[in-house]
């Protein structure tokens, strides 16, 4: 396995008695693109701030390269941060912003120049050295912020929702750009976002967080295809989540029907959460369906139609390339591979 560069052990953080991180432990491998993903308030930014040294955990330890750095102030850590909304110094021009960290380290002026210009080259901002950061567009400011952090050759780069303020098209561009930079420099990126699509596109490893703790760690493909619990399933992509009963291995009952599935190893008659992705529900004529229901609404979403079907009090969300008539009675089929079964979450985590 790759070696661990940052390790968090039993980190507890609370603000005024309110628990934000509840004993979080996490190993981050060197040279990986790791994303902390979760809804707002899940503790992902707090985790990042603990690694950056802006926040001291109430208990627990932070290790960097095997050494305990808990309590070490940020300016002594070998990590740099790209802040939300960039935090560029408005009184300094682009060149001076990027040179800021090197100046503090008393790097020779000649070397500063080559490193700063090289970094601006890499982010595509050569020729912008004398510009005032406030006169740059959001995307350009973002690039300056990245250059300012990377010029110091950090072993780990922390990015706190760096693309949050950009419009959709620019976000997509920057996503590829960031991935390219990470590959080129071959260093660890720890990236915080609440955008699941962003997380799936860019990361080597995704850490899904909720309620101050980790829900699942895995590759984007694993996380999407094999969500460990209903929260992850719901948060990563759209899902129909139903409660069901595991009849026996490879057989589950939900919505009043028994379905063949590929899961096994549950206790007999265990109550489970059943997750079905909207694109995995096949629409068929009513009599041919395993389930049948009434179409409540149809919305055109560009690539597909989103169809809401009511069946026995549950509203199914279906993505289909074919439109249906609201009010129509239709059938639904779900293949065994498309049924994901997971242990019931405790109510608290929902």
């Amino acid at each position: 396995m790759e070696n661990t560069i940052v390790a968090l052990k039993d980190i507890v953080v609370d603000f005024d008695g309110e628990a934000v991180l509840t004993g979080l432990s996490l190993d981050i491998h060197d040279k990986e693109f790791v994303t902390l993903l979760g809804p707002s308030g899940c503790g992902k930014t707090t985790t990042l701030r603990v690694i950056g040294g802006f926040l001291e955990p109430k208990s627990g330890n932070v290790f960097f390269d095997g050494k305990d750095i808990t309590g070490m102030p940020p300016y002594k850590r070998q990590v740099n941060t790209v802040f939300q909304k960039y935090a560029l110094f408005p009184h300094l021009n682009v060149y001076e912003n990027v040179a800021f960290g090197l100046r503090l380290r008393k790097v020779e002026e000649k070397e500063i120049k080559t490193r700063v210009l090289g970094m601006l080259e890499m982010v595509g901002l050569r020729g912008f050295e004398r510009r005032d950061p406030t006169t740059l567009s959001g995307g350009q400011q973002q690039r300056v912020a990245i250059a300012r952090a990377l010029v110091n050759h950090p072993r780990v780069l922390l990015l706190d929702e760096p693309l949050g303020a950009l419009d959709l098209k620019l976000r997509k561009e920057m996503q590829t750009e960031l991935k390219r930079i990470q590959k080129n420099l071959n260093i660890t990126f720890i990236y915080v976002t609440h955008d699941q699509e962003e997380a799936l596109t860019m990361s080597d490893t995704v850490v899904v967080m909720n309620g101050g703790d980790i829900q699942q760690i895995g590759t984007p493909v694993d996380i999407y295809n094999e969500p460990k619990n209903a929260f992850v399933a719901d948060f990563i992509g759209e899902s129909n989540i139903l409660s069901g009963v595991m009849e026996r291995d490879f057989c589950v009952e939900f919505s009043g029907q028994q379905f063949a599935c590929v899961d096994k190893g549950f206790a007999p008659r265990e109550l489970v959460d059943v997750v079905v992705r909207p694109e995995d529900v096949q629409v068929v004529p009513a009599i041919q369906g395993q389930l049948s229901g009434v179409v409540k609404s149809v919305i055109f979403k560009g690539v597909h139609y989103e169809i809401i079907v009511e069946q026995a009090g549950f509203e199914w969300k279906i993505h289909s390339t074919q439109s249906q008539q609201p009010g129509e009675f239709i059938g639904m089929n779900i293949g065994p591979d498309e049924i994901h079964i997971m242990h019931r979450m405790e109510e608290a985590a929902r």
Partner: peptide, 21 residues
């Protein structure tokens, strides 16, 4: 922005340097 102050620390300023710079 508090992050301005944090960015300075992140880039290697001591708190006193961060204040003046």
């Amino acid at each position: 922005d508090v992050r301005m102050w944090e960015a300075a620390l992140d880039l290697g300023c001591t708190p006193v340097q961060a204040f003046f710079k």
